[in-house]
Simulated assay, not measured.
Amino acid sequence: MDVIGTSGLTKRFGRVTAVDHVDLRVPAGARFGLLGPNGSGKTTLVRMLLGLVHPTSGSVELLGRAMPRHGAEVLPRVGALVEGPSAWPHLSGPANLRLLDAAGPGGRRRDRRRRVQDALERVGLGGIDRRPVRAYSLGMRQRLGIAAALLRAPELLLLDEPTNGLDPRGIGEVRDLLIALNEAGTTVVLSSHLLTEVEALCTRVGVMDGGQLVLTEDLDVLRAPTGHVLVRTPDPAAVVPLLDGQVVGRSGDALVVRGDDAAALNARLVAAGVAVSELALQRRTLEQVVLGLTGTGSDRVDGGTT
């Protein structure tokens, strides 16, 4: 079953096409990363999924129901954080969550304090005091926004840059939390331009560029072996004639060797008396995949390249 399905989804703002005929499928139980440079259409797509922006054309289904027509039925089953956390700045974090919980359908009042406390504890704010949100750090605000998304034990989480403002430890904690939620049955969709975070968390990725979805694939497939093996040896000169044309690159004690059986290559070198200090199959990184698919757009305004 797909928890997200779009068909020909398009959004134009005047002459600008922000999202261009996107057909997206996200299966239940996935950890899905939506990647692309700033301005590629990721946030606009997420906003259309939630019914916050109406499409110019095309259709959206969320949890098997058409959006935004069935938003009142679907959205209580969805947790979302889009374009950063929002809050009443003069109120405390717990007070903000209680108001959000009261505003949503289906939440029983007698369980509200427990739900709020559970959500705060899950994001590392269980001991927060009554200080107003305006006194929170950016990382604390981000944690509060994630807590708000978790209030109703959602079936689907849609998170736009959820680790923004977090320190390295906080990033790791959020990653562990999302993996645990996913293993308990929640589908997680993460929109981000941070490739390392998506690579560490997600099992499937979609890449957007210029408003178009240019790739959707399992991460394991994208990072399949390249057909080359990296070999490090204190005697690289002995390897080149031994492998008879299989060496395709050399830098110091490192050689790139054509082949896909690292164990057999290691046995061959050792049998020939060559000492091997490192040997590993080469794989493409997610960064290489994304940069190979997306254009040259960036945040620069000086006409340079990055």
Rank of each mutant, 00 (worst) to 15 (best):
Asp111His: 12
Arg143Thr: 06
Met208Ile: 15
Val247Thr: 03
Leu158Gly: 11
Gly79Val: 06
Asn96Ile: 01
Leu281Lys: 06
Val133Tyr: 06
Arg250Tyr: 07
Leu255Lys: 04
Gly304Val: 05
Leu201Ile: 10
Val207Tyr: 02
Arg258Asn: 11
Arg130Lys: 14
Pro236Asp: 05
Val221Met: 03
Glu197Cys: 13
Val248Tyr: 01
Leu81Met: 13
Arg250Gln: 15
Asp118Tyr: 01
Arg108Thr: 00
Val123Tyr: 02
Ala200Gln: 12
Pro225Asp: 01
Val229Met: 05
Val205Met: 12
His193Met: 15
Ala149Asp: 08
Val189Leu: 11
Leu97Pro: 04
Ala153Ile: 03
Leu159Tyr: 03
Ala149Lys: 10
Leu157Val: 02
Gly33Leu: 01
Asn38Met: 12
Leu194Pro: 03
Thr163Ala: 14
Ser7Phe: 12
Gly165Pro: 05
Pro27Cys: 07
Leu63Lys: 00
Leu144Tyr: 10
Ala271Gln: 09
Arg77Gly: 04
Val188Cys: 02
Gly126Phe: 00
Thr10Val: 04
Leu222Ala: 00
Asp118Phe: 00
Pro105Leu: 04
Leu195Tyr: 06
Gln246Asn: 15
Pro162Leu: 09
Ala280Trp: 02
Thr43Ile: 12
Arg152Leu: 06
Ala149Pro: 08
Tyr136Ala: 05
Leu281Trp: 07
Cys202Thr: 03
Ala267Cys: 11
Glu161Arg: 15
Asp176Gln: 14
Arg134Ile: 14
Ser191Gln: 04
Gln288His: 09
Gly145Trp: 07
Arg115Asp: 00
Leu151Pro: 03
Val248Leu: 05
Asp167His: 09
Ala238Pro: 02
Leu281Pro: 04
Val174Phe: 07
Gly79Asn: 05
Met48Ile: 14
Val133Ile: 10
Ser251Met: 13
Val53Tyr: 10
Ser7Val: 12
Gly273Met: 04
Leu63Tyr: 00
Asp101His: 12
Gly304Arg: 06
Gly33Phe: 00
Arg223Gly: 13
Leu219Ala: 07
Arg143Ile: 07
Leu178Thr: 04
Gly104Cys: 14
Leu158Lys: 14
Gln246Val: 11
Arg12Phe: 00
Val240Leu: 05
Thr196Tyr: 15
Asp260Glu: 14
